[in-house]
Design a binder for these strands. Structure first.
Length: 278
DNA sequence: CACTTGACCTGTCCGC
DNA sequence: TGCGGACAGGTCAAGT
């Protein structure tokens, strides 16, 4: 599911809630979702919550707990029941957790909990000592390291691939997934099917700017919810209300009123406006 | 090598 | 209503 803006949304939300707490219990309902020895994190204190690309990290005092939500993962935080006024929270206040897709449940020192839900079971959680697992990843698009020069160099290693397919390659840059790849191509006014090698310098420049712009917009609206995504409070993201092309096939382009088209690139649905994008 | 397709899973939606 | 097929915010391994 989540691309950079969705993971960033969860990161910002969790940061305010769990720093300083200790993990007191880990309940693994689906073993394939948790790939390490959970006893390593028991009674360890949470120091920070970080993000690298689409991977979320809960930094503990002795190691890092990494999460990849893949297509359908969710991380939902639930306050301690006794912290609700009156002491009798409704099921709705507790986000109805756990649910059928709940795979792992963490309990914290103040009685609050974190639910890892993942309908499709593609997501994973692992405990690592350092970030070497993520060494192969490309630059962070919202950091200074994502310079136009770096982007151009990484992009041009794939001259014969469609632009949109290359945006999904996490060694070129991290964090862009299927929604924001189509949106970035739209903002750039470039057809997602164009070969990278055919892009002009001006178009590469616009693409670089558009990637940053669309990801920032995604964060601003709390991420995108097509089906699964919710933030740590169980709330949906609003970005798709403001999207120009993603999942809008058959509808009118918000700029030129022509019909938005859908095609397949690299096996993924791809959306574009034929008249705005050349 | 560069590039494409299939596999991993579960659930929903659409056409017959 | 049932059934099959396509499809869904991702990433690998295996194919060509």
């Amino acid at each position: 599911m989540p691309e950079l803006p969705e993971v960033e949304t969860i990161k910002l939300g969790l940061k305010n809630k769990i720093i300083g707490l200790k993990i007191t219990k880990v309940q693994i309902l689906n073993p394939k979702s948790f790939l390490s020895d959970p006893s390593l994190i028991l009674d360890k204190q949470i120091v920070d919550v970080i993000r690298r690309g689409k991977v979320l990290g809960i930094v503990l005092d002795n190691c890092i707990l990494l999460f990849h939500l893949k297509m359908s993962g969710q991380l939902i935080y639930q306050k301690a029941e006794e912290s609700f006024v009156g002491g009798h929270p409704t099921k709705d206040m507790l986000n109805n957790m756990p649910v059928k897709s709940t795979r792992v449940i963490f309990e914290f020192s103040d009685g609050s909990k974190l639910f890892f839900n993942d309908q499709r079971k593609f997501g994973w959680i692992k405990i690592v000592k350092d970030f070497s697992l993520l060494d192969h990843l490309g630059p962070e698009p919202l950091e200074k390291e994502f310079s136009l020069e770096t982007f151009r160099n990484n992009l041009l290693k794939h001259k014969n691939s469609a632009v949109k397919v290359v945006l999904l390659d996490q060694t070129v840059l991290v964090g862009v997934g299927n929604i924001y790849a189509s949106e970035a191509c739209f903002l750039t006014k470039v057809d997602p099917q164009r070969k990278v090698g055919s892009l002009s310098e001006e178009e590469i420049k616009r693409l670089h700017k558009s990637i940053i712009e669309t990801l920032k917009s995604g964060i601003k609206y709390g991420g995108s919810t097509r089906t699964h995504f919710v933030n740590e409070e169980g709330k949906k993201g609003l970005f798709l209300d403001y999207a120009y092309v993603y999942n809008r096939q058959g509808k009118k382009c918000k700029i030129c009123q022509n019909i938005i088209l859908k095609t397949t690139l690299g096996g993924r649905g791809t959306f574009f406006c034929q008249s705005c994008q050349n």
